[in-house]
Design a protein around this nucleic acid. Structure first.
Length: 423
RNA sequence: AGAGGAAUGGCAGAGUGGUCGAAUGCGGCGGUCUUGAAAACCGUUGUACCGCGAGGUACCGGGGGUUCGAAUCCCUCUUCCUCUGCCA
Protein backbone atom coordinates (compact mmCIF):
# COMPACT_ATOMS: atom_id res chain seq x y z
CA UNK A 1 0.00 0.00 0.00
CA UNK A 2 0.98 3.60 -0.42
CA UNK A 3 2.70 5.53 2.34
CA UNK A 4 0.71 8.36 3.86
CA UNK A 5 3.77 10.56 3.96
CA UNK A 6 4.27 10.03 0.25
CA UNK A 7 0.70 11.08 -0.34
CA UNK A 8 1.24 14.19 1.75
CA UNK A 9 4.47 15.14 0.05
CA UNK A 10 3.64 14.27 -3.56
CA UNK A 11 -0.09 14.76 -3.60
CA UNK A 12 -0.32 16.03 -7.19
CA UNK A 13 2.01 13.41 -8.65
CA UNK A 14 0.19 10.57 -6.93
CA UNK A 15 -3.16 11.96 -7.92
CA UNK A 16 -2.09 12.17 -11.56
CA UNK A 17 -0.76 8.62 -11.37
CA UNK A 18 -3.98 7.22 -9.98
CA UNK A 19 -5.92 9.04 -12.66
CA UNK A 20 -3.73 7.38 -15.27
CA UNK A 21 -5.01 4.13 -13.83
CA UNK A 22 -8.56 5.39 -14.12
CA UNK A 23 -8.95 5.03 -10.37
CA UNK A 24 -12.24 6.73 -9.59
CA UNK A 25 -12.59 9.56 -7.05
CA UNK A 26 -8.85 9.63 -6.56
CA UNK A 27 -8.71 13.17 -5.23
CA UNK A 28 -11.46 12.69 -2.65
CA UNK A 29 -9.95 9.43 -1.48
CA UNK A 30 -6.45 10.85 -1.13
CA UNK A 31 -7.80 13.76 0.85
CA UNK A 32 -9.69 11.35 3.04
CA UNK A 33 -6.47 9.45 3.69
CA UNK A 34 -4.76 12.60 4.90
CA UNK A 35 -7.74 13.51 7.02
CA UNK A 36 -7.87 10.08 8.64
CA UNK A 37 -4.16 10.24 9.29
CA UNK A 38 -4.56 13.63 10.92
CA UNK A 39 -7.24 12.14 13.11
CA UNK A 40 -5.02 9.24 13.96
CA UNK A 41 -2.16 11.54 14.88
CA UNK A 42 -4.18 13.83 17.08
CA UNK A 43 -5.89 11.01 18.92
CA UNK A 44 -2.57 9.33 19.46
CA UNK A 45 -0.97 12.50 20.75
CA UNK A 46 -3.77 12.92 23.24
CA UNK A 47 -3.68 9.30 24.21
CA UNK A 48 0.08 9.33 24.71
CA UNK A 49 -0.09 12.42 26.88
CA UNK A 50 -2.76 11.05 29.13
CA UNK A 51 -1.00 7.71 29.27
CA UNK A 52 2.17 9.49 30.37
CA UNK A 53 0.25 11.13 33.18
CA UNK A 54 -1.21 7.84 34.25
CA UNK A 55 2.21 6.20 34.16
CA UNK A 56 3.72 8.84 36.37
CA UNK A 57 0.88 8.60 38.89
CA UNK A 58 1.32 4.87 39.00
CA UNK A 59 4.98 5.33 39.73
CA UNK A 60 4.17 7.72 42.52
CA UNK A 61 1.74 5.24 44.00
CA UNK A 62 4.46 2.66 43.96
CA UNK A 63 6.82 4.93 45.89
CA UNK A 64 4.15 5.97 48.36
CA UNK A 65 3.33 2.35 49.07
CA UNK A 66 6.99 1.64 49.69
CA UNK A 67 7.20 4.49 52.12
CA UNK A 68 4.07 3.25 53.84
CA UNK A 69 2.02 6.31 53.01
CA UNK A 70 -1.17 4.37 52.50
CA UNK A 71 -3.57 7.23 52.57
CA UNK A 72 -1.79 9.33 49.99
CA UNK A 73 -1.57 6.31 47.76
CA UNK A 74 -5.29 5.72 47.99
CA UNK A 75 -5.87 9.33 47.13
CA UNK A 76 -3.75 9.03 44.01
CA UNK A 77 -5.59 5.88 43.00
CA UNK A 78 -8.84 7.76 42.93
CA UNK A 79 -7.41 10.15 40.35
CA UNK A 80 -6.38 7.38 38.00
CA UNK A 81 -9.91 6.00 37.76
CA UNK A 82 -10.94 9.01 35.74
CA UNK A 83 -7.88 8.87 33.53
CA UNK A 84 -8.49 5.24 32.90
CA UNK A 85 -11.84 5.76 31.27
CA UNK A 86 -10.42 8.56 29.17
CA UNK A 87 -7.65 6.33 27.95
CA UNK A 88 -10.11 3.68 26.99
CA UNK A 89 -12.10 6.18 24.99
CA UNK A 90 -9.08 7.64 23.22
CA UNK A 91 -7.73 4.18 22.61
CA UNK A 92 -10.87 3.24 20.80
CA UNK A 93 -10.85 6.43 18.81
CA UNK A 94 -7.25 5.88 17.87
CA UNK A 95 -7.58 2.27 16.80
CA UNK A 96 -10.70 3.14 14.86
CA UNK A 97 -8.89 5.87 12.95
CA UNK A 98 -6.04 3.47 12.33
CA UNK A 99 -8.36 0.76 11.08
CA UNK A 100 -10.26 2.98 8.70
CA UNK A 101 -7.03 4.46 7.43
CA UNK A 102 -5.65 1.02 6.72
CA UNK A 103 -8.86 -0.16 5.12
CA UNK A 104 -8.86 2.87 2.85
CA UNK A 105 -5.21 2.47 1.93
CA UNK A 106 -5.92 -1.14 0.96
CA UNK A 107 -8.33 0.08 -1.69
CA UNK A 108 -5.79 2.35 -3.39
CA UNK A 109 -3.67 0.78 -6.12
CA UNK A 110 -0.01 1.48 -6.70
CA UNK A 111 1.01 4.64 -8.52
CA UNK A 112 2.15 3.89 -12.07
CA UNK A 113 5.67 4.70 -13.17
CA UNK A 114 6.05 7.78 -15.38
CA UNK A 115 6.63 5.61 -18.45
CA UNK A 116 3.29 3.81 -18.14
CA UNK A 117 1.10 4.73 -21.10
CA UNK A 118 -2.36 6.15 -20.64
CA UNK A 119 -5.08 3.69 -21.52
CA UNK A 120 -8.14 1.80 -20.45
CA UNK A 121 -7.64 -1.80 -21.53
CA UNK A 122 -5.42 -4.34 -23.24
CA UNK A 123 -5.72 -2.62 -26.65
CA UNK A 124 -3.96 0.41 -25.21
CA UNK A 125 -0.84 -1.47 -24.15
CA UNK A 126 2.31 -0.36 -25.91
CA UNK A 127 4.16 -2.92 -28.00
CA UNK A 128 7.79 -2.44 -27.04
CA UNK A 129 9.29 -4.97 -29.41
CA UNK A 130 8.59 -8.07 -31.43
CA UNK A 131 11.09 -10.85 -31.93
CA UNK A 132 11.23 -13.93 -34.12
CA UNK A 133 9.23 -14.87 -37.16
CA UNK A 134 5.78 -16.29 -37.15
CA UNK A 135 5.78 -19.75 -38.73
CA UNK A 136 3.58 -20.45 -41.72
CA UNK A 137 1.64 -23.63 -41.16
CA UNK A 138 -0.25 -25.73 -43.64
CA UNK A 139 -4.00 -25.34 -43.99
CA UNK A 140 -4.69 -28.49 -42.02
CA UNK A 141 -2.90 -27.07 -38.96
CA UNK A 142 -4.48 -27.96 -35.65
CA UNK A 143 -4.96 -25.91 -32.51
CA UNK A 144 -3.26 -27.36 -29.46
CA UNK A 145 -6.48 -28.74 -27.98
CA UNK A 146 -6.73 -30.97 -31.04
CA UNK A 147 -3.05 -31.83 -31.02
CA UNK A 148 -3.07 -33.02 -27.44
CA UNK A 149 -5.88 -35.42 -28.30
CA UNK A 150 -4.21 -36.59 -31.49
CA UNK A 151 -1.00 -37.44 -29.63
CA UNK A 152 -2.74 -38.29 -26.34
CA UNK A 153 -0.46 -36.17 -24.17
CA UNK A 154 -2.90 -34.05 -22.15
CA UNK A 155 -6.30 -35.25 -21.03
CA UNK A 156 -8.92 -32.74 -19.98
CA UNK A 157 -11.71 -35.27 -19.63
CA UNK A 158 -9.77 -37.29 -17.09
CA UNK A 159 -9.14 -34.08 -15.16
CA UNK A 160 -12.85 -33.35 -15.18
CA UNK A 161 -13.52 -36.79 -13.76
CA UNK A 162 -11.13 -36.53 -10.85
CA UNK A 163 -11.34 -32.80 -10.14
CA UNK A 164 -13.19 -30.58 -12.58
CA UNK A 165 -12.81 -28.38 -15.63
CA UNK A 166 -9.49 -26.61 -15.91
CA UNK A 167 -7.49 -29.33 -14.15
CA UNK A 168 -5.80 -31.25 -16.96
CA UNK A 169 -3.97 -34.55 -16.62
CA UNK A 170 -0.62 -34.58 -18.39
CA UNK A 171 0.30 -37.98 -19.76
CA UNK A 172 3.37 -39.66 -21.23
CA UNK A 173 5.34 -37.22 -23.35
CA UNK A 174 3.01 -34.47 -22.20
CA UNK A 175 4.01 -35.05 -18.59
CA UNK A 176 7.67 -35.29 -19.57
CA UNK A 177 7.44 -32.03 -21.47
CA UNK A 178 6.14 -30.36 -18.32
CA UNK A 179 8.99 -31.71 -16.27
CA UNK A 180 11.54 -30.75 -18.94
CA UNK A 181 10.29 -27.17 -19.08
CA UNK A 182 10.31 -26.79 -15.30
CA UNK A 183 13.88 -28.05 -15.08
CA UNK A 184 15.00 -25.93 -18.02
CA UNK A 185 13.50 -22.78 -16.51
CA UNK A 186 14.96 -23.48 -13.08
CA UNK A 187 18.40 -24.22 -14.48
CA UNK A 188 18.39 -21.04 -16.53
CA UNK A 189 17.41 -18.99 -13.49
CA UNK A 190 20.09 -20.58 -11.35
CA UNK A 191 22.64 -19.84 -14.08
CA UNK A 192 21.48 -16.22 -13.93
CA UNK A 193 22.27 -16.07 -10.22
CA UNK A 194 18.91 -16.93 -8.68
CA UNK A 195 18.68 -19.02 -5.54
CA UNK A 196 16.19 -21.84 -5.69
CA UNK A 197 13.51 -22.20 -3.04
CA UNK A 198 10.65 -24.62 -2.72
CA UNK A 199 7.94 -22.89 -0.72
CA UNK A 200 4.62 -24.19 0.61
CA UNK A 201 1.74 -23.85 -1.80
CA UNK A 202 -0.77 -23.04 0.88
CA UNK A 203 -0.37 -19.73 2.67
CA UNK A 204 -2.00 -18.02 5.60
CA UNK A 205 -3.98 -14.82 5.63
CA UNK A 206 -1.02 -12.63 6.60
CA UNK A 207 0.84 -13.74 3.50
CA UNK A 208 -2.18 -13.00 1.34
CA UNK A 209 -2.24 -9.47 2.68
CA UNK A 210 1.50 -9.10 2.42
CA UNK A 211 1.66 -9.36 -1.34
CA UNK A 212 -1.72 -7.77 -1.94
CA UNK A 213 -3.93 -10.71 -2.97
CA UNK A 214 -6.04 -9.92 0.09
CA UNK A 215 -8.33 -8.17 0.49
CA UNK A 216 -8.39 -7.21 -3.17
CA UNK A 217 -8.64 -10.59 -4.89
CA UNK A 218 -10.24 -12.67 -2.21
CA UNK A 219 -12.52 -14.54 -4.63
CA UNK A 220 -9.71 -15.44 -7.00
CA UNK A 221 -7.95 -17.79 -4.62
CA UNK A 222 -9.00 -21.24 -3.49
CA UNK A 223 -9.65 -21.06 0.20
CA UNK A 224 -9.16 -24.05 2.50
CA UNK A 225 -11.61 -22.82 5.07
CA UNK A 226 -11.12 -25.56 7.65
CA UNK A 227 -7.65 -24.19 8.32
CA UNK A 228 -8.08 -20.73 6.83
CA UNK A 229 -5.33 -21.24 4.30
CA UNK A 230 -5.22 -20.17 0.68
CA UNK A 231 -3.85 -22.09 -2.30
CA UNK A 232 -1.31 -19.83 -3.93
CA UNK A 233 -2.24 -18.20 -7.24
CA UNK A 234 1.48 -17.69 -7.90
CA UNK A 235 4.78 -18.47 -6.18
CA UNK A 236 5.18 -14.71 -5.78
CA UNK A 237 3.05 -14.99 -2.65
CA UNK A 238 5.11 -17.43 -0.58
CA UNK A 239 8.49 -16.39 -1.98
CA UNK A 240 8.01 -12.67 -1.40
CA UNK A 241 6.49 -13.32 2.02
CA UNK A 242 9.68 -15.10 3.01
CA UNK A 243 10.87 -11.56 3.64
CA UNK A 244 7.85 -10.28 5.54
CA UNK A 245 8.95 -8.44 8.70
CA UNK A 246 12.58 -8.73 7.72
CA UNK A 247 15.27 -6.08 7.88
CA UNK A 248 18.03 -6.96 5.46
CA UNK A 249 21.43 -5.38 5.42
CA UNK A 250 22.29 -3.46 2.30
CA UNK A 251 25.01 -5.92 1.30
CA UNK A 252 22.42 -8.68 1.05
CA UNK A 253 20.72 -6.85 -1.80
CA UNK A 254 19.70 -7.78 -4.36
CA UNK A 255 17.97 -10.91 -3.14
CA UNK A 256 17.31 -13.16 -6.13
CA UNK A 257 15.03 -16.14 -5.60
CA UNK A 258 13.47 -18.58 -7.99
CA UNK A 259 10.91 -21.28 -7.34
CA UNK A 260 8.68 -23.67 -9.16
CA UNK A 261 5.18 -24.24 -7.84
CA UNK A 262 1.81 -25.21 -9.10
CA UNK A 263 -0.52 -22.20 -9.15
CA UNK A 264 -4.22 -22.24 -8.45
CA UNK A 265 -6.71 -19.74 -9.76
CA UNK A 266 -10.46 -19.84 -9.46
CA UNK A 267 -10.82 -17.51 -12.46
CA UNK A 268 -14.35 -16.84 -11.34
CA UNK A 269 -16.41 -15.42 -14.16
CA UNK A 270 -13.59 -15.26 -16.68
CA UNK A 271 -14.41 -18.25 -18.86
CA UNK A 272 -15.48 -18.02 -22.47
CA UNK A 273 -14.93 -19.35 -25.96
CA UNK A 274 -11.43 -17.85 -26.24
CA UNK A 275 -10.09 -19.72 -23.24
CA UNK A 276 -10.13 -23.21 -24.69
CA UNK A 277 -7.54 -25.82 -23.99
CA UNK A 278 -4.45 -24.65 -22.19
CA UNK A 279 -5.20 -20.97 -22.58
CA UNK A 280 -6.71 -20.72 -19.12
CA UNK A 281 -6.56 -23.27 -16.32
CA UNK A 282 -7.40 -23.54 -12.65
CA UNK A 283 -4.13 -25.29 -11.93
CA UNK A 284 -0.89 -24.80 -13.79
CA UNK A 285 2.84 -24.85 -13.21
CA UNK A 286 5.03 -21.83 -13.18
CA UNK A 287 8.62 -20.91 -12.40
CA UNK A 288 8.71 -17.55 -10.73
CA UNK A 289 11.63 -15.19 -10.21
CA UNK A 290 11.53 -12.70 -7.35
CA UNK A 291 14.00 -9.95 -6.54
CA UNK A 292 14.32 -7.62 -3.61
CA UNK A 293 16.44 -4.62 -4.44
CA UNK A 294 17.70 -1.25 -3.36
CA UNK A 295 15.22 1.43 -4.48
CA UNK A 296 17.86 2.98 -6.74
CA UNK A 297 18.35 -0.27 -8.64
CA UNK A 298 14.85 -1.61 -9.15
CA UNK A 299 14.27 -0.37 -12.69
CA UNK A 300 17.63 -1.63 -13.82
CA UNK A 301 16.68 -4.97 -12.30
CA UNK A 302 13.28 -4.91 -13.98
CA UNK A 303 15.04 -4.64 -17.32
CA UNK A 304 17.40 -7.45 -16.35
CA UNK A 305 14.45 -9.68 -15.47
CA UNK A 306 12.73 -8.81 -18.73
CA UNK A 307 15.89 -9.79 -20.62
CA UNK A 308 16.07 -13.05 -18.71
CA UNK A 309 12.53 -13.97 -19.72
CA UNK A 310 13.18 -12.97 -23.32
CA UNK A 311 16.27 -15.14 -23.30
CA UNK A 312 14.13 -18.14 -22.39
CA UNK A 313 11.72 -17.44 -25.22
CA UNK A 314 14.58 -17.08 -27.67
CA UNK A 315 16.05 -20.39 -26.60
CA UNK A 316 12.66 -22.01 -27.03
CA UNK A 317 12.56 -20.48 -30.52
CA UNK A 318 9.15 -18.94 -29.97
CA UNK A 319 8.11 -15.68 -31.63
CA UNK A 320 7.24 -13.19 -28.95
CA UNK A 321 6.49 -9.58 -28.26
CA UNK A 322 6.94 -7.39 -25.22
CA UNK A 323 4.19 -5.09 -24.02
CA UNK A 324 4.37 -2.17 -21.67
CA UNK A 325 1.05 -2.33 -19.88
CA UNK A 326 -1.09 0.77 -19.84
CA UNK A 327 -2.54 2.32 -16.72
CA UNK A 328 -5.87 0.58 -17.10
CA UNK A 329 -4.47 -2.91 -17.65
CA UNK A 330 -1.85 -3.06 -14.91
CA UNK A 331 -2.11 -5.16 -11.81
CA UNK A 332 -3.29 -3.48 -8.62
CA UNK A 333 0.06 -3.56 -6.86
CA UNK A 334 2.42 -2.85 -9.75
CA UNK A 335 4.19 0.36 -10.72
CA UNK A 336 5.41 -0.89 -14.08
CA UNK A 337 4.68 -4.17 -15.83
CA UNK A 338 6.01 -5.75 -18.98
CA UNK A 339 4.03 -8.63 -20.42
CA UNK A 340 5.63 -11.16 -22.70
CA UNK A 341 3.36 -12.81 -25.23
CA UNK A 342 4.15 -15.69 -27.55
CA UNK A 343 2.44 -16.23 -30.85
CA UNK A 344 0.45 -19.41 -30.97
CA UNK A 345 0.40 -20.08 -34.67
CA UNK A 346 -2.66 -22.30 -35.07
CA UNK A 347 -4.93 -20.19 -32.91
CA UNK A 348 -3.24 -17.19 -34.54
CA UNK A 349 -3.25 -15.40 -31.20
CA UNK A 350 -0.75 -13.80 -28.88
CA UNK A 351 -0.73 -15.53 -25.50
CA UNK A 352 0.56 -13.94 -22.33
CA UNK A 353 3.24 -16.18 -20.87
CA UNK A 354 5.00 -13.83 -18.50
CA UNK A 355 4.42 -10.69 -16.57
CA UNK A 356 7.39 -8.89 -15.07
CA UNK A 357 6.65 -6.15 -12.56
CA UNK A 358 8.25 -3.65 -10.26
CA UNK A 359 6.18 -3.00 -7.16
CA UNK A 360 8.55 -0.40 -5.78
CA UNK A 361 7.59 -0.08 -2.08
CA UNK A 362 3.95 -1.02 -2.49
CA UNK A 363 4.42 -4.60 -1.33
CA UNK A 364 7.33 -3.94 0.98
CA UNK A 365 5.30 -1.41 2.90
CA UNK A 366 2.70 -4.04 3.66
CA UNK A 367 5.33 -6.67 4.22
CA UNK A 368 7.50 -4.44 6.38
CA UNK A 369 10.36 -5.51 4.17
CA UNK A 370 13.21 -3.15 4.87
CA UNK A 371 16.94 -2.87 4.65
CA UNK A 372 19.53 -1.04 6.67
CA UNK A 373 21.95 1.01 4.64
CA UNK A 374 25.44 2.27 5.34
CA UNK A 375 23.86 5.30 7.01
CA UNK A 376 22.18 2.88 9.50
CA UNK A 377 18.77 4.09 8.47
CA UNK A 378 16.16 1.47 7.77
CA UNK A 379 14.10 2.02 4.67
CA UNK A 380 11.70 0.06 2.53
CA UNK A 381 13.19 -2.12 -0.18
CA UNK A 382 11.72 -2.58 -3.64
CA UNK A 383 10.21 -5.89 -4.67
CA UNK A 384 9.91 -7.29 -8.18
CA UNK A 385 8.77 -10.51 -9.72
CA UNK A 386 8.21 -12.18 -13.01
CA UNK A 387 7.10 -15.46 -14.49
CA UNK A 388 10.02 -17.29 -15.98
CA UNK A 389 7.87 -18.93 -17.17
CA UNK A 390 4.28 -20.14 -16.93
CA UNK A 391 3.98 -23.50 -18.62
CA UNK A 392 0.60 -24.09 -20.27
CA UNK A 393 0.66 -21.40 -22.92
CA UNK A 394 4.30 -22.13 -23.68
CA UNK A 395 3.26 -25.72 -24.24
CA UNK A 396 0.39 -24.56 -26.43
CA UNK A 397 2.70 -22.47 -28.57
CA UNK A 398 5.38 -25.15 -28.82
CA UNK A 399 2.80 -27.72 -29.92
CA UNK A 400 1.08 -25.49 -32.44
CA UNK A 401 4.11 -23.76 -33.93
CA UNK A 402 6.18 -26.89 -34.40
CA UNK A 403 3.55 -29.26 -35.77
CA UNK A 404 4.44 -31.18 -38.93
CA UNK A 405 2.81 -34.09 -40.67
CA UNK A 406 5.48 -36.30 -39.08
CA UNK A 407 4.89 -35.11 -35.55
CA UNK A 408 5.68 -32.16 -33.33
CA UNK A 409 9.31 -31.06 -33.19
CA UNK A 410 10.62 -30.12 -29.77
CA UNK A 411 12.89 -27.09 -29.36
CA UNK A 412 16.54 -28.14 -29.40
CA UNK A 413 17.26 -26.70 -26.03
CA UNK A 414 14.80 -29.13 -24.46
CA UNK A 415 16.15 -32.31 -26.04
CA UNK A 416 18.55 -33.15 -23.21
CA UNK A 417 15.77 -32.56 -20.70
CA UNK A 418 13.20 -34.55 -22.63
CA UNK A 419 15.11 -37.57 -23.81
CA UNK A 420 13.24 -37.33 -27.14
CA UNK A 421 13.06 -34.74 -29.88
CA UNK A 422 9.61 -35.24 -31.33
CA UNK A 423 6.11 -36.03 -30.17
C1' A B 1 -4.35 -36.98 18.37
C1' G B 2 -3.30 -37.33 24.15
C1' A B 3 0.03 -35.81 28.56
C1' G B 4 3.69 -32.48 30.27
C1' G B 5 7.16 -28.32 29.55
C1' A B 6 8.54 -23.85 27.15
C1' A B 7 8.36 -18.94 24.19
C1' U B 8 12.42 -12.45 26.79
C1' G B 9 16.68 -7.86 22.53
C1' G B 10 21.25 -10.34 16.52
C1' C B 11 22.34 -15.00 19.63
C1' A B 12 22.68 -17.19 24.60
C1' G B 13 20.32 -16.21 29.08
C1' A B 14 18.61 -13.56 34.09
C1' G B 15 14.31 -11.47 35.66
C1' U B 16 7.50 -14.16 39.32
C1' G B 17 3.57 -7.31 40.56
C1' G B 18 6.43 -0.89 40.97
C1' U B 19 12.41 2.91 39.68
C1' C B 20 12.54 -3.12 33.87
C1' G B 21 13.11 -1.34 27.31
C1' A B 22 14.77 -5.13 30.56
C1' A B 23 20.98 -7.78 34.26
C1' U B 24 25.01 -10.60 32.35
C1' G B 25 27.79 -13.04 28.45
C1' C B 26 28.68 -13.45 23.22
C1' G B 27 28.36 -11.03 18.64
C1' G B 28 28.24 -6.07 15.92
C1' C B 29 29.99 -0.92 15.64
C1' G B 30 33.44 3.13 17.34
C1' G B 31 37.84 4.18 20.09
C1' U B 32 42.59 3.55 23.20
C1' C B 33 46.99 0.65 22.83
C1' U B 34 50.02 -1.54 18.41
C1' U B 35 54.34 -1.01 12.58
C1' G B 36 49.73 -4.07 11.62
C1' A B 37 46.66 -7.75 13.83
C1' A B 38 45.20 -10.41 18.23
C1' A B 39 44.49 -9.75 23.40
C1' A B 40 43.12 -6.19 27.00
C1' C B 41 40.49 -1.83 28.27
C1' C B 42 36.67 2.22 27.35
C1' G B 43 32.27 3.60 24.91
C1' U B 44 28.16 2.23 21.96
C1' U B 45 24.56 -1.22 20.07
C1' G B 46 16.18 -3.01 18.83
C1' U B 47 11.60 -1.50 16.20
C1' A B 48 7.42 1.57 15.40
C1' C B 49 4.40 5.77 16.32
C1' C B 50 3.54 11.06 18.21
C1' G B 51 6.28 15.77 18.78
C1' C B 52 9.82 21.61 15.51
C1' G B 53 12.40 20.12 19.80
C1' A B 54 13.07 18.65 24.79
C1' G B 55 10.80 14.54 25.15
C1' G B 56 6.62 11.08 25.19
C1' U B 57 3.99 6.36 23.96
C1' A B 58 3.88 1.22 22.60
C1' C B 59 6.28 -3.50 21.98
C1' C B 60 9.35 -9.42 26.62
C1' G B 61 5.22 -15.29 20.78
C1' G B 62 -0.38 -13.18 19.18
C1' G B 63 -5.07 -11.58 21.28
C1' G B 64 -8.00 -10.56 25.63
C1' G B 65 -8.48 -9.84 31.07
C1' U B 66 -7.21 -8.64 36.50
C1' U B 67 -4.61 -4.26 38.80
C1' C B 68 -3.43 2.49 40.40
C1' G B 69 0.67 -0.37 38.04
C1' A B 70 2.02 -6.61 34.20
C1' A B 71 7.88 -9.51 31.06
C1' U B 72 5.95 -11.23 35.92
C1' C B 73 -0.99 -13.12 37.73
C1' C B 74 -5.54 -15.20 34.83
C1' C B 75 -7.99 -16.76 30.04
C1' U B 76 -7.30 -17.97 24.98
C1' C B 77 -4.76 -18.88 20.42
C1' U B 78 -0.20 -20.03 17.91
C1' U B 79 4.52 -22.17 17.72
C1' C B 80 8.52 -25.19 19.65
C1' C B 81 10.50 -29.26 22.87
C1' U B 82 9.85 -34.19 25.56
C1' C B 83 6.95 -38.69 26.10
C1' U B 84 2.79 -41.82 24.06
C1' G B 85 -0.09 -42.90 19.57
C1' C B 86 -0.43 -42.62 14.22
C1' C B 87 1.97 -41.97 9.58
C1' A B 88 4.65 -40.79 3.86
Amino acid sequence: MLLVNQIRENFETILAGLQKRNFPNAETILQEVIQLDDQRKSSQTQRDQIQAESNSISKQIGMLMKEGKREEAEHAKARTAEIKSQIKELDEENSQAEESLKALLYTIPNVPHASVPVGKAAEDNEVVLEHGSIPTLSDDKLPHWELIKKYDIIDFDLGVKITGAGFPVYKGKGARLQRALINFFLDEAIAAGYYEVQPPILVNEDSGYGTGQLPDKEGQMYHATADNLYLIPTAEVPITNLYRDVILSEEELPVKNVGHTPCFRREAGSWGAHVRGLNRLHQFDKVEIVQITHPDKSYEVLEEMSQHVQGLLKKLELPYRVLRLCGGDMGFTSALTFDMEVFSAAQERWLEVSSVSNFETYQSNRLKLRFKGADKKTQLAHSLNGSALALPRIVAAILENNQTPEGINMPKVLHPYLGFDKI
